[in-house]
Lab assay of single mutants.
Amino acid sequence: SDPSEDRAPESARVGNIPSSTSALKVPQLKVAESAQGPAAAHTTDTAGYNAMEESVSREKPELTASTERVNKRMSMVVSGLTPEEFMLVYKFARKHHITLTNLITEETTHVVMKTDAEFVCERTLKYFLGIAGGKWVVSYFWVTQSIKERKMLNEHDFEVRGDVVNGRNHQGPKRARESQDRKIFRGLEICCYGPFTNMPTDQLEWMVQLCGASVVKELSSFTLGTGVHPIVVVQPDAWTEDNGFHAIGQMCEAPVVTREWVLDSVALYQCQELDTYLIPQIPHSHY
């Protein structure tokens, strides 16, 4: 159930021909089969995070001529859309010479989310990475209204306002976009420790780096000194050995919190207090 199309920051360009055919990675995205229709094609874990990302398996898109002007500035990904909605975005992107990729990268400028009429969405990996990267996180209605009015409308009017977990109007995407000089995790050293489900560890690490944190791979690698705040992030329900995560405190002095601390902080683009996310640790033995 991992969102495989989000696994690594590679891009698939639509609308320009790469210098070599080997560089072309066409979105071959799968549809989750469901008797209840597209709305039930998501699996949500206890964290309220949509693990099964969206989309559609299609034939290789038709490439435009390399001489045609390509908008190098805009690059989009989509999240939560049905196959039909994805194809509408594809046509919109081609019309406006926008790069459409299946994986979010540093070059991505827009994340197009499936939302309700009030621009509230589910939480997906692309949603988190879009906010963390200060990108435009907009409703699919931006595409449909632009098509209806036959011009590209202003993104401000379609920015995602909230999500089904953290609140319907928290304005996290807007706050992140306007606060890239004040990253929420700066001054923190974060170790993403142990197993994680539904989200590859490297993507979680990239997320906290985008928010200004330094990533530490091992508990023994924390910088011990003033001005640096170490934090260990774990996902308790992913551990097979009972309560192993309670013993992390015996290996390092850092506070240990659940992954929800990261996800909530990123969604709201406000660093949350650790208290409600802390995992009790077995104290050091004193002999």
Rank of each mutant, 00 (worst) to 15 (best):
I98V: 08
F245R: 05
V160I: 04
A93G: 04
V89S: 10
G227V: 05
G15T: 12
E106K: 07
H42R: 07
V257F: 01
V14T: 11
N50R: 09
T67G: 04
K148P: 02
E5F: 03
V164K: 03
G130H: 00
V257E: 01
H246N: 05
C192P: 00
L81K: 01
G187A: 14
L81D: 01
L24R: 10
D242L: 12
I190Y: 01
K95L: 12
F158T: 01
I98H: 05
R69C: 13
Q36H: 09
E155Q: 11
V77A: 15
V160N: 00
G244L: 15
G37S: 05
D275L: 12
V78T: 08
Q36R: 08
V256R: 02
I282M: 13
R150S: 15
V165S: 04
E62M: 10
N166A: 03
P255T: 02
E84Y: 10
C121N: 01
R73L: 08
S57K: 00
T115H: 00
P27T: 12
M52D: 12
E189H: 10
Y49C: 11
Q180T: 04
F185T: 00
T258S: 15
K183Y: 12
V160T: 01
G194A: 14
K217L: 13
E178I: 08
V70F: 09
G134Y: 03
M251R: 11
F119I: 02
Y140S: 05
Q36C: 09
N50M: 04
G37E: 10
K135D: 02
S57Y: 10
H286Y: 08
V26I: 04
M76T: 03
W239E: 15
V138S: 01
V89F: 06
G130P: 01
D45P: 10
E33G: 09
G249V: 01
R168C: 09
G187I: 03
A93M: 09
Q209G: 14
L188Y: 03
R182Q: 04
K183I: 10
S4E: 04
T82F: 04
L153P: 02
H229R: 13
F245S: 12
C121R: 01
Q180L: 13
Y287R: 07
G194R: 07
A132Q: 00
V26L: 13
W136P: 00
S79A: 01
Q171T: 11
Q250S: 14
R259C: 00
E241D: 15
G227N: 10
R58S: 12
P83T: 10
C211T: 15
L188W: 06
Y193F: 10
V262L: 03
S55G: 13
E5L: 09
F92T: 04
I184Q: 01
T109Q: 00
V31I: 03
Q180D: 15
A93T: 13
S19H: 09
H170V: 06
I131R: 01
M251E: 12
N243F: 15
Y127L: 00
K60A: 04
E33P: 09
V56C: 14
S1T: 04
S19C: 07
R259I: 02
K151P: 01
T258V: 05
S220A: 15
G130T: 00
P38A: 12
N198L: 12
D264T: 10
E253N: 13
M87V: 13
